[in-house]
Design a protein around this nucleic acid. Structure first.
Lengths: 353, 353
DNA sequence: CTGTTAGCGCCTTCAC
DNA sequence: GTGAAGGCGCTAACAG
């Protein structure tokens, strides 16, 4: 693994010199197109060996400049601290790699200024496509991309400036609401008392989920109380505070809770940990998101899980037949968190002890 | 935000033509170095305006080729599915951005082949520095980097081929062990019964933690049972299975459990959820890792939290005075998970209701 | 003050 | 089969 004697990275010239062949021969061999040019196999092997020995690496900057293909695929997302975003990132990376692209994912902490500047940076890096995940208002970012001629896809939160793929929030919320109502009835409480907590009003995902929640009510011919829906953002602490208020004014816990995000749910768990376990016996809890720990809490939770794999698949499909004019909105169904993890798969095969 | 009429991305030539100036003038203005060259402010403004109007973006590929600086900072890590790795990624990104670098982080799912090829890809992309996180054997990757003249830092798992920064696993494990022993004594059980579960034998972090665990025993003048340490890898399911075995052979739960990773702990939680709550009353549990949900489980857990921010800081510091010959190993202390999150900070200020 | 020019490392025609 | 040459977009000398 000797390094180029010059001290800097080695180039095709170095290896051409070392093997006594021409740069074009080297280039062809390195690209695997040498057979087409009837280059002697022996020459090819000599070149390959020399490249390995010199620790040669293509300079994608130069190749990209020449070919106007960077080999980069970009994704921006809010953060990695929940399974939804983490799953999107990992699936994206895997898929990008399988296409011979180098995935480059950047988190923006939901800061519009950062979102903007990161997008510009990624465009500067000539990413060949860009996934914009969980951005409240993707429109300016879409504009940037389309100005640069870069295909981009909005994920999770849609926008009119580009094709979008999102979970079927409305359908999922309806299904979740219905499931929770059933449980409430089974527990002897009134399904109409189910509360919807968390998220941001006027944000697409939250609005859709509220719509789904209302759909379920309508289907039953009832309607939620005036204060049944409360959107306090994505912080765990504001969620906890909201719960505390409910608890105080009700004198007890609500009988049904649909938490709109994992952080809202986290706030609930924090609050729950302060109360005796008995206080939870008659409360039915659901969450529009999934987390492995949340499954095993002192109370039962019904979790709606988003299909990250399918979402990424659809997004790549949209990127493939990228049409600058048509901006479809693809919806991916959600499931009840019963999807099998690879990890769980091994359990079923192996015995427990 | 009109796009270059040609249909492709606009270049400095386009804007030179549009403004009737020269490419060098444009280049200087765009780089902010125009004052030095006494270019008329009016010209500069005209150029800037035109650039904005054309939706111009620098081509970092070309600039990088010229300057031999890519503006990229790379990180590879196993995955994003726990707070430790997610935190490392986010802190890395923030720090890289603050240095004017574009962070590019890629997950490898602990697959050595993927680690290798991703590293090669990142080198091809000419990253200016590379953080290698949680790689069992970073040596070949370090070799790749040093052959390419790219400074790299091993994080979490060290190696002789590059400077490394890791948590003080031994000290942390000792502190955790001691804390758990105290609790066991308070609960009326023998501290010597504390078990160490999870991780991979022969892996640096696990070995250090086992050493710390033994340190605490020695300090007490006792020693763990022959089968007190069990390393079954990083899967939640294998952890659960191991617990099941212990339970079966003991006829009850162990009185003290030190779980060596969050996934091992996850397995414990899975197993716990099958048992009545009472079964846990006399078990003391600790975990060398931190998760927000785990804090609020039906039983109390003592969590050792790694200081991701400090780790990244140290890693960048090492990258700064990069010395190809000297490869120090920096240790970052761990804490008892009592570190305040920004989110929690707001709680203390605001009232609960 | 502004325009011209020579590469950065690579790929691809096009002659030889 | 191989070598020479042009150019991708940009920057930094160097002339004007």
């Amino acid at each position: 693994m000797a390094r180029s004697s010059s001290g800097r990275k080695s180039t095709i010239y170095d290896i051409a010199k070392a093997t006594g062949s021409s740069t074009s021969a080297v280039s062809m061999v390195l690209n695997g197109t040498w057979a087409r040019y009837r280059i002697k196999e022996e020459t090819a092997n000599r070149i390959l060996a020399s490249a390995a020995q010199l620790g040669y690496n293509v300079n994608m900057k130069a190749r990209g400049l020449r070919l106007s293909r960077s080999g980069l695929a970009g994704m921006i997302l809010p953060h990695y601290r929940n399974r939804f975003f983490a799953g999107l990132a990992e699936n994206f990376e895997e898929h990008a790699r399988s296409r011979g692209l180098c995935p480059i994912v950047v988190s923006t902490q939901r800061d519009p200024a950062v979102e903007m500047s990161v997008t510009e940076t990624l465009i500067s890096q000539q990413v060949e496509l860009l996934f914009i995940v969980g951005v409240r208002n993707p429109t300016p970012l879409d504009a940037l991309c389309s100005a640069a001629g870069i295909p981009c896809i909005n994920v999770d939160l849609p926008g009119p400036g580009a094709p979008s793929v999102v979970s079927d929030n409305r359908g999922g919320a309806r299904a979740l609401t219905e499931a929770l109502m059933e449980k409430m009835i089974a527990a002897g409480s009134a399904p109409g008392e189910l509360l919807f907590l968390g998220g941001v009003m006027d944000e697409y995902a939250t609005e859709m989920r509220i719509a789904g929640y209302r759909d379920a009510f309508e289907a039953r011919g009832i309607s939620p109380a005036a204060d049944a829906v409360e959107c306090f953002g994505y912080g765990a602490s504001s969620s906890r505070r909201a719960l505390a208020c409910r608890y105080e004014s009700l004198g007890r816990l609500p009988t049904g809770l649909l938490m709109n995000s994992i952080t809202a749910f986290e706030g609930l768990v924090q609050f729950a940990s302060k109360l005796p376990r008995e206080a939870w016996q008659s409360t039915v809890v659901g969450c529009f998101d999934w987390d492995p720990f949340a499954v095993h809490l002192p109370f039962e939770v019904t979790m709606m899980r988003q299909d990250v794999q399918k979402i990424i698949l659809e997004a790549f499909a949209l990127a493939d037949n990228h049409d600058a004019t048509d901006h479809p909105l693809v919806m991916v169904p959600t499931g009840f968190g019963e999807m099998v993890e690879e990890d769980e798969l091994t359990i079923k095969i192996g015995r427990e002890c």
